[in-house]
Design a protein around this nucleic acid. Structure first.
Lengths: 222, 222
DNA sequence: GAAATTCCGTTGAAATTTCAACAGAAGAGG
DNA sequence: CCTCTTCTGTTGAAATTTCAACGGAATTTC
């Protein structure tokens, strides 16, 4: 696990915890590392919600498919991001989403009960981790609001613009790459792929954006 | 404040805290009670995110309006519900939503910093409250997933059915009242009011639902 | 209880999105 | 370098949603 310490240090769960305590802490928590190939499921909908995860390398997507095969990408997760912590912390029965590796990736799994309840004898970091979880969950909540600001828009153009604006702000630049291909972007914005392609073409023609593959440039004042 | 103790006891923030400790705890936290008339704003978008709130009586709605006047109702809150805790716990600059009284109501406001940091000398309940906040935030996260399952549907009918199914499950009954009028329901589902009305009519004709005002009955097997 | 206001279903036209299908581009594998 | 697969833009038709407008029902106000 040693080799992942740089990633783990950045993980919100371990804020305020010294790196030299990490090793024993992880042992105490019973942390495991698992590896997945691209497109493999890290969790399936319906899996028990006992564990939270940390992405160590690669990336994954939180996905819901409805019974008609409509796919919706809730979010993407990257190294040092936590995932499934909401379900574990809420002590939900099971996970309501699929979590799918979008590239070869490795993740660390921790039984959330070990953080919230047991183990308080051996290591003194539980209060810190609970505090960290609280902040992480609050931030995830805010991100949901931001996502809702995108998907709540009524038209494809508005959704795309809302999304690109957020990305531009996040990257502090009018020019950036997005972590989606066309189909995925459509699933994230919750629109039709072909309609999205058409809309992108129109917006390029109108000079509102520039685009090549997953690289976008926003015109001034967007 | 005494008269609100029954409501406060049920509030997730105070789980595991004895009622006879509540009074001194609230003093320690600097809790204030404010009253609002129907349609009055409890918070405006842009207000500082220092305080979390607890609904004591009446009800309110979390709302986002975009620059085109498109309104979206994120959620409704009722007595003993927490609100704005995500923004306060995440130490966000400001609140990204409006919170509007949907009836005459009173709310308690608590400076979140008092829960997370200071005051640890006088009262021993901070760890408990932080733990409670963590669980509350995790549950709110799950509710966002549920909301997304509704708004992520592509058609008005699908959205309405997803919403009504959730309500039926929540009420453990095929028959229930919803906390919205038509315009509000449309804003919650993120569709057009007139289209929603038309869709409801069609579904009634088809025998899928029964409806009178805000009372709905789902047919078997929904 | 009368008047004023808000709420709600309906409707038809306009705009948008979805769907299905296809062909060229790009990428992966051998 | 060739083949096979996946990805993407385009297009036209069908379906759905939005928009604007109206009148009647229901509710609020005084």
């Amino acid at each position: 696990m040693q080799k992942y310490f740089d990633v783990l240090k950045k993980c919100a769960l371990f804020h305020g915890i010294e790196e030299n305590n990490l090793s024993s802490l992880l042992t105490c928590l019973g942390a495991r590392v698992l590896n997945f190939d691209k497109k493999e499921a890290i969790f399936y909908e319906g899996d028990p919600a006992k564990h939270l995860g940390i992405v160590l390398s690669g990336s994954a997507q939180i996905i819901t498919d409805d019974y008609l095969g409509n796919r919706s990408i809730v979010s993407t997760i990257e190294p040092s991001d936590l995932f499934a912590e909401s379900f574990a912390c809420a002590e939900a029965e099971s996970i309501p989403v699929d979590i799918i590796a979008s590239s070869k990736c490795s993740v660390m799994l921790i039984d959330c009960g070990h953080i919230m309840y047991t183990c308080s004898n051996t290591c003194a970091f539980h209060q810190q981790m609970i505090f960290n979880l609280m902040k992480d969950l609050a931030q995830k909540n805010i991100r949901f609001h931001q996502k809702a600001e995108i998907t709540g828009k009524r038209s494809t153009r508005e959704k795309l613009l809302a999304y690109l604006s957020q990305e531009a702000k996040k990257n502090k630049a009018r020019e950036f790459d997005i972590p989606f291909n066309r189909q995925e972007l459509a699933d994230y914005l919750e629109v039709e792929r072909s309609g999205l392609s058409a809309e992108i073409s129109r917006m390029v023609k109108e000079g509102i954006i520039e685009n090549r593959k997953n690289h976008f440039v926003l015109a001034d004042g967007r």
